[in-house]
Design a protein around this nucleic acid. Structure first.
Lengths: 344, 344
DNA sequence: ATGGTTATGACAACCGATTGTCGTCCGAGT
DNA sequence: ACTCGGACGACAATCGGTTGTCATAACCAT
């Protein structure tokens, strides 16, 4: 069916080893020019395709990288994956993509499976702030990069949005619209996004000298509409001082929060302004369209892949640098100047 | 670092071949029970992990399947991918996922690369009605399955939504609301979805004895909001008899069409009802929320994977059966009873 | 003429499993 | 006592490349 190196070598009247060297540009100089030509032409004539498995066995390189994402159906990840893939495919590499559903056990299992497949490197979009997989990768010095989510301990290179600045911009925006009572519905604390955005919010509140008890933080149980709605209802049930603006941990929480407001007969943005995070697809077409912080998702993926490739090629050492990409505030209709009729 | 089969064999005092047989449940019967026990316990003690590359080289099975999708950032595909992955991972298989962007050249290149990686099978969500890759797979009898998109020639097993019935249900729904002037904005004709839905629309119109020139079809250049909007404007510019209902080729086209209506100072659903296809995320939260045909995307992926596995294991021969999954009409607010004030 | 490079390519080991063949040994049956 | 059969496991070939070593020959300079 397919011809092997031995076939080519025999047809060219050379030893397989010699044919191998002739075919490989790196080692071609060890072979006479006309021999190279002969081997090359015969290889083409026989439509020779090297067997990657055999090559991998010898070279210990599979050209495969493991890509762990929490959940592809979350619109945040596909653009990241595509960014990664764009860069990888340029270098003849391919990604084994797996979904962990934020389940550490599942993640472990899949990670082990990918390691057994001898992936040359890993990109993780699944990191928890404290993540044994990340520790293992760092310990064993396996080429790997974090994307979007960070760990508390700086163990691996990472590429993520500059959430700290983004949150400050969000708070500034609301203040500029006259808001002084701003709440934050944070994402889960076990994930860096939730925790960093939360810390940045508190920092911004303090920096802008807003009253701390006018700016409550509540944690949503997960990054979902339902959790956002539940959190909002809980927030409004528990605080005496009602906020006139809300910064959500992400777009889904924001959407859920707006649902919650609707239930309370409050409207967005007239009564309460809402800001999301990530700039997910279609949030520009919701009613109201969502003001949100745009995450350069594709770029995140590309940069992560580039860094991984540099580490794998030895052009860069695997040190735990954090690369932060700017997030722009996209102002839409879910934020508005505080109305005078607002509560308090 | 990691121990090999030879290490285990030596420690157990047996030949590597024997150790291999002891480790493999299929061949274990060829080895004495206590030898098996010894090998097993030593393998565990040495934390032996078989080298998949070496195994693949010998067995010609990589446990990898190639998954071609047009574009992961199109929300249609991630659930399909996840469905596939769920089934595959249950069997220890993994998917190499690549995006072709509906670009045949890119598809070819990626397909070739995946073939060189010795994928055991393929799942294609990228098929054109006439697709050389599909022909090659069928010719060479490589285990493979189509998902969501079909080819004109029945060459491979496929799993897709029952679009024919779905379209009939959509037309029925509009007729039951009093509409008699129904237009269809079809998707690209080179892809089965566009062509089947279009043919089904024409069939339904004829079957229901609607006047053919009251039910125009226009083709959008691609499955996007912009193309949908452009198509709608062109439609309303060119027909004397204005439709009071539109069935779009998919949700994105529907959303674009609604934008177009808005430009013409027509509102949905008061003036014109609109139906989408696929039931994409968030279309239930748009204003108006979109009536659409729900595609069981996850199930599509699962079924495709199951069929592929059955082919690969020889439990099923690779015949070109088309598996059609039912699509439910989800009635929301973009369709309404035809108002009496409507044009004509 | 001689010693020393250099170019070339044959050779074989190797990567780490899998698997068919075959020899040996033991016990059972006649 | 002898044969037959089965259990067991050693052995080696194999999958298809890659790569370091070495032999040979040609070439150069002294």
């Amino acid at each position: 069916m397919t011809s092997t190196l031995a076939d080519v070598a025999k047809a060219a009247g050379v030893h397989p080893g010699t044919a191998s060297k002739a075919l490989n540009p790196e080692t071609r100089h060890r072979v006479a020019d006309d021999t190279v030509k002969r081997v090359l032409s015969i290889a083409k004539k026989l439509n020779y395709q090297p067997n990657n498995i055999a090559r991998s066995l010898r070279t210990r390189k599979t050209g495969t990288i493991g890509l762990l994402v929490p959940d592809l159906t979350n619109a945040l990840f596909p653009p990241i994956v595509r960014g990664i893939e764009r860069v990888l495919s340029e270098h003849g590499l391919h990604a084994l993509v797996v979904n962990t559903d934020n389940n550490p056990e599942k993640a472990n299992q899949l990670f082990t499976a990918l390691r057994l497949r001898q992936c040359d490197g890993f990109i993780l979009a699944t990191a928890f702030r404290n993540d044994p997989i990340v520790e293992e990768l760092a310990e064993r010095n396996i080429p790997s990069v974090l994307v979007n989510r960070l760990t508390d301990k700086k163990l691996l290179p990472s590429v993520s949005g500059d959430e700290w600045s983004a949150m400050h911009v969000a708070v500034d925006h609301l203040i500029s619209l006259g808001h002084t009572h701003i709440a934050h519905i944070a994402g889960p604390r076990s994930i860096s996004n939730g925790s960093i955005r939360r810390a940045a919010f508190l920092d911004a509140v303090e920096e802008k000298k807003l009253k701390k008890d006018h700016c409550p933080v509540i944690v949503a149980s997960e990054y979902s509409e339902d959790a956002g709605e539940a959190a909002l209802l809980k927030l409004f049930a528990s605080t005496k001082v009602k906020p006139t603006a809300i910064i959500a941990g992400n777009d889904q929480i924001a959407i859920g929060a707006i649902d919650g407001l609707r239930q309370l007969k409050l409207s967005c943005p007239e009564d309460v302004s809402v800001i999301g995070f990530n700039d997910s697809p279609l949030v520009d077409r919701l009613q109201p369209s969502l003001t949100t912080l745009h995450l350069p998702k594709h770029q995140l993926g590309e940069d992560a892949a580039v860094i991984l490739l540099e580490i794998m090629s030895g052009k860069r050492t695997q040190k735990a640098e954090a690369h932060l990409l700017p997030c722009d505030l996209i102002v839409r209709n879910s934020t508005a100047r505080m109305s005078s009729k607002a509560n308090r």
